[in-house]
Nucleic acid binder design. Structure first.
Lengths: 229, 229
DNA sequence: CTCCATCCGATCGTATATGATTGTGTGGGT
DNA sequence: ACCCACACAATCATATACGATCGGATGGAG
């Protein structure tokens, strides 16, 4: 909205950047669900740009794994298979566990309190949407302190893909929330207690994340039960 | 120049795909070194396509982190800071360690022998280029069996970024190779011995990878010594 | 000699135009 | 009734065209 005539250089974000952000946003918040077709010309009209910047945006989203593209056919919002989902959460557990241990020494009392607050809100929340958002924010508060930028980015990437897949939107059992909240508090307890064995911290945080897979498998909602043990 | 008139469908890979592959290849093998400017029109001429597909290719490479792009200025091959490098290898250690433990149960005697062979070649190799390639191939042979596609892709992604950065091309001390080879054999020994404690396997493999960071820090080649201890 | 205003060339950003490919619907043949 | 050939519509793939922007070269003022 700035006065772009006053020779202020580039008028805001470029068209392709704008297209990228808007499409991405719509995928992440569920307006474009998995499988939804993304027609270049249509998007171009909607966003009031030419098809070229839209193509660039789609390419980026494709590279991020949020969109799948087939030549001469078109793009659609990526669909996550059950295996993919499990493997993504496994990787999430791995990274988040590591990040938790690495973040422990940097966590201030202030930050721990923030996390406790988020967790408290999470305990009361009812809607899937809010639960997901708070849960993610809780973890983010911690792993942001882990000191490894690439690990942080990878975690954000995984969460984005999970959000986009809408899998948890229907599966995540409210049942699990209660347990998760307790585990969160237990993790924060360790931080306050000054537990300093990185191996212990990492293992606990990893297990907490893996419990999500176990809970969903136990609820029998997934088609492929996967590993036998 | 295949006869693309004979209604043979799409004439091979699309132009943008071709551009993507070729540019990517040149970045990975060092023909385009970090900082190298990637001018759209020039590349378009060289690859004999219009600038549009080249732009798409660049966008993908940008999303992968191999290329950095500045508006109205252009693209260049991404440069890796020392911190970035350390953090990437840290993440590599994390993922590779996990993958090693996860792969252990699937490793056939055949595969272990392949790995031993690669390691034996590595022991004799002299040139940096071959050392890097063999070292990567050794690890790949194992982590490919880990069963988690996303972890595998993340590992490939990290190795690609490391290759592109050319950091190890100059830094990786041939000194370290000897130690690394011994550690590799020790890891394979564990597999053959039937060590089945995932925690032990993961920890050993992780340490092996972290040793690379330690070795380079010790050699004093890095500008930022990083962690104090 | 140094510094700043201006200009110009290189390069990017986007729109438009056109050919190519895919999938689909329709009509005839069996 | 079923199957295949053909034609058409939707959509993608790429080329070309042109305006916008940036960074460095140029030339004058202090």
């Amino acid at each position: 909205m700035q006065p772009e005539h006053s020779s202020t250089g580039p008028s805001g974000p470029s068209k392709h950047e704008l297209a990228y952000r808007r499409i991405r946003q719509r995928i992440l918040d569920g307006r474009y669900q998995p499988g939804h077709r993304l027609v270049l010309s249509t998007l171009a009209r909607e966003l009031d740009v030419s098809p070229v910047p839209v193509r660039e945006a789609i390419r980026r989203l494709e590279a991020e794994g949020l969109v799948s593209f087939e030549r001469n056919v078109g793009a659609r919002v990526a669909t996550l298979g059950d295996d993919d989902w499990v493997q993504l959460v496994e990787m999430l557990a791995l990274l988040d566990g590591y990040a938790f241990a690495a973040a422990a020494p940097q966590m201030t009392a202030e930050l721990i309190r923030t996390a406790r607050d988020l967790n408290a809100q999470l305990r009361l929340e009812q809607t899937h949407e809010r639960v997901m958002a708070l849960h993610r924010e809780f973890h983010r508060t911690i792993y942001r302190c882990c000191g490894n930028r690439h690990v942080i980015e990878a975690l954000e990437w995984i969460w984005d893909r999970i959000d986009a897949s809408r899998v948890l939107a229907s599966l995540y059992p409210l049942l699990r929330v209660r347990t998760a909240v307790d585990e969160h508090d237990a993790l924060l307890d360790q931080l306050e207690r000054g537990e300093d064995d990185a191996r212990v911290l990492e293992a606990c945080a990893r297990e907490h994340n893996l419990n999500t897979i176990r809970a969903i498998r136990a609820s029998g909602t997934m088609k492929v039960a996967g590993s036998g043990h």
